[in-house]
Design a protein around this nucleic acid. Sequence first.
DNA 1: AATTATTTGCAAATAATTCGCATTAAGAAT
DNA 2: ATTCTTAATGCGAATTATTTGCAAATAATT
Lengths: 151, 151
Amino acid sequence: MKQNPLAATLRQSGYKATHARLAILAYFKKHPRPLSARQIVEGIGTEVDQATVYRTIRSLKGKNIIRQVDLRHNHAHYEFASLGEHHHLVCTRCGKVEDVHRCNMETMRREVLAESKHFADISQHSLEFYGTCKACAQKESSRSREETRIR
Amino acid sequence: MKQNPLAATLRQSGYKATHARLAILAYFKKHPRPLSARQIVEGIGTEVDQATVYRTIRSLKGKNIIRQVDLRHNHAHYEFASLGEHHHLVCTRCGKVEDVHRCNMETMRREVLAESKHFADISQHSLEFYGTCKACAQKESSRSREETRIR
DNA sequence: AATTATTTGCAAATAATTCGCATTAAGAAT
DNA sequence: ATTCTTAATGCGAATTATTTGCAAATAATT
């Protein structure tokens, strides 16, 4: 009964290994990028209700099994935490997301805590970069070239 | 007519210096911390409609007059961009926000762009730290002491 | 003062997230 | 294996967050 590693993860955190939670975690595992609640609900299909998806996300977030990511899309995204620390580069035109590794934030985190007046600990951080992907930059420049030609 | 510097800022960016926009910018200036759309609507009172607040935020964001901040509160926050680059330390219990200065991200930003396969430029970034403020840590520890005593 | 293109307010729509409650099912106990 | 207990789920409705359409208002221009 304990052969499923996702179930083991859940039980170790004090949760029942329910069908819904296993389906959600499996979905995260299969899609290793920032996912919105809607994407998960639709991706999993009818087997899990959206209220359950939101509730599950919330509790798993509390145990650091998944983590929240902000892409500035007016809704939250979430990622499987076991992907390890990494950050994101987000295209503000088309929404493309590229992972960013090797930003070591450990030192900075320590320094920030040491300099803080009011905080006792720092458990997480988010670091995302926003810009323009090459494809969008290309479109943009060809569009403005056209405008120039017309005038 | 050009004596108001906020009006000048708006006109320089190609906007009309309307009552609504001036009120919104003045509110940002007077409250230099991350503000939600709701806080702005309620803070300004009846003089500006919420649709206008959202529309104004969106367009000013596009011109980097205000910038978006994510505190993981399920709604966006915004800050006057002229506050200069800084980041935030957010308490995950009570929501307290402390500003964080002197994280110089310029080098990191350049490196990230240099290592990126698909991006042409990076125009912004967000960096927030999440943890527990001293007040909440205090409450937490006294609460768990009580629990221990009771058992 | 008249003109024109923006911008706004209002009301209604849509998107995102949460809640209440009766029912179900996971894991523990028997 | 069956029963028990409580956490967890589904469903529907409620809230919260954000956007939109359109007629009326207004800033900047002439």
